[in-house]
Design a protein around this nucleic acid. Structure first.
Lengths: 339, 339
DNA sequence: CAGCCTTACTAAACCGGTTAAGATAAGGGT
DNA sequence: ACCCTTATCTTAACCGGTTTAGTAAGGCTG
């Protein structure tokens, strides 16, 4: 089995130096047109393709961004909202000629994965990095953007919406429609390790409740992973034990599961029980059935995050935090409560 | 700004050679316990983390598998079936300590992307690689596994189900229930470049039809991208122009869109119009509402593909083609046609 | 005590490119 | 005729590890 063709082979065969060959591929202005032609012809003849890893290594760039997956690949990719974020990241990567690497915990260890990740920058979503991981990233001088995470570290830049305000708006809309028997399905606090997004939103709910002078105890609060199935199961448990007039969820995926369970019981979403989602996954190809929700563009989050990361990689001045907009999207699943 | 700590720094500080330091990290049995301890202590002290790219480069391994994305990231990741395949791949990657890299067409060129991909092996899904791309892969000696693609190349191994037989079974089930006004929504033939999966399944449909002595002309055949939205729109157009008693789709995502459109028109899925899907995305967290379908495990496809790829990477004897099982899954959306 | 093996370590080649610095020759200005 | 510039190409260092071959010291054997 012959060895692969290297820059050295081309150099010898074409009668030039390694450097000349390198220039021919990267900066033709540094050599004569004649040399350029000869070298490219020789390269074609020998079937030469520059080794990307060697190239990246000597340039000190990986040409890849990493998306750190909190737990298992499973749930993360399942959520249509995560998908839209990844899509946004992917677009920007493509523009920059970068690849996108999904980084699952290596041998169940995030630290290990981060140590070995061959990427120029990292994005995380919905969870706070441990001190150990942050220390590794600092040593490796690897820029990080945290999506929906906490901006409690100078090294970690963040992209998110104003979750507290958004959650407040969400619950206000529900309260304005007269609902009082409300079941909130939050994201698990410990989802993705020490997530704090759920905490920020709970605060917003508290604000809305006190604005309406409603005692927090009157609200049913539970939590569920951000999946369709989980939403369905949780709604089932709640409906077995009580009869809320409205479900408020922190994720559209959960809301869709809730709607499915409501219909399964022969009830009508909107007329019998209202449902309020969070995310606005409308454009994700996922069926959302006119869900009333707090819409935030996952794609924009992905795009802004990746752009931010590229600024940091390029050593440019980068904002430590980017807040993107959200809005209430009127649907057909939130209706005035029946008298 | 100080330079990063290298193996050289550790060697000097600890009073050993570069090689000794390398051994300390990779094969402690080659050095004394004393040296091992001293070196690791020094490494910890200086905050040393081996550079993964340099390590990979000298070892000649990338420690990453690539998933080649046909067109835009968008549609690919949107399909829950694709997601389950990726999940399967991810599991195997994790076991092997590998990362999974999503490779979008670089500057809109798949060839360019494949030239620059820093991965040890490639997986594609649902499309046939062009000769140019195959030639690049041959030069780079990069193993490829094609999922649901055509096994027309010695270099490209494949994992799929027997699509022709599966499609035949799918349509037979529908015909057995008495349906004759049938609308088939196929995958686009040109989806993912020169896809051939649609062709194989069409053949299967033909077989079923002739077994029932039904003229192919009596069947409405259209095609749609494998997304929820596309299924909804296509069903809308079909229902505007005709009144099939059953929809047969090549993808559950499409089938769910079809069901959504049927319900939107005030009709009942199953009783008024039957729907038959393909994929069996039940376990994907996607709402599938008792869809009758041809189930094939996306996760298993992913797992087998990745395992196959690892065999090839390790230079082991690997089967050129793996066929995984499928089965008809009884649901509530396919019912006996009304007299 | 020579001969041989084992242990512990090092020097240097190597992976395949990039790139700073230097060499050579040709061209231009005075 | 001389110096300076520019164009073109080469040499060699470099990126940060891994790994092969080799050496020196110590222990064992006969």
């Amino acid at each position: 089995m012959s060895k692969r063709t290297t820059i050295q082979d081309i150099a010898e065969k074409a009668g030039y130096s390694k450097a000349a060959v390198s220039f021919a591929f990267n900066d033709p202005s540094k050599i004569s047109k004649e040399a350029h032609d000869r070298i490219l012809a020789t390269a074609r003849e020998l079937g030469y393709i520059p080794d990307p890893m060697a190239r990246n290594f000597s340039r000190g760039r990986h040409m890849a961004l990493g998306f750190l997956l909190p737990q298992m690949l499973q749930e993360s990719l399942q959520n249509p909202y995560t998908q839209s974020v990844i899509r946004g990241i992917g677009e920007v990567c493509q523009e920059h000629g970068y690849m996108l690497t999904l980084i699952p915990p290596l041998h169940s260890s995030v630290s290990e994965a981060v140590k070995n990740a061959t990427v120029d920058g990292l994005m995380t979503m919905g969870f706070v990095l441990s001190g150990k991981v942050r220390s590794i990233l600092r040593i490796r001088r690897m820029p990080v953007v945290s999506i929906d995470g906490e901006a409690d570290d100078d090294d970690v830049h963040s992209v998110s919406i104003d979750d507290e305000k958004a959650a407040e708006l969400q619950l206000r809309k529900v309260l304005e429609k007269g609902h009082r028997r409300i079941a909130i399905i939050a994201l698990p606090d410990d989802a993705y390790e020490s997530s704090s997004i759920a905490g920020r939103r709970r605060k917003g709910y508290g604000n809305a409740l006190s604005a309406f002078s409603i005692p927090p105890e009157s609200i049913i609060v539970s939590s569920a992973k951000a999946t369709f199935r989980s939403g369905m199961e949780t709604a089932g448990r709640i409906l077995d034990a009580s009869s809320p007039t409205c479900f408020v969820t922190m994720s559209d995926a959960v809301a869709i599961g809730v709607m499915s369970e409501i219909r399964r019981r022969g009830l009508t979403v909107g007329d019998d029980i209202s449902v309020m989602g969070f995310d606005g996954i409308e454009d994700s190809g996922f069926p959302c059935y006119g869900l009333s929700t707090i819409a935030q563009s996952g794609e924009e989050k992905g795009i802004r995050s990746a752009e931010l990361l590229f600024m940091m990689i390029d050593g440019k001045e980068a904002p430590s935090s980017i807040i993107i907009p959200y809005e209430y999207r009127e649907g057909t699943t939130l209706k005035e409560v029946k008298a």
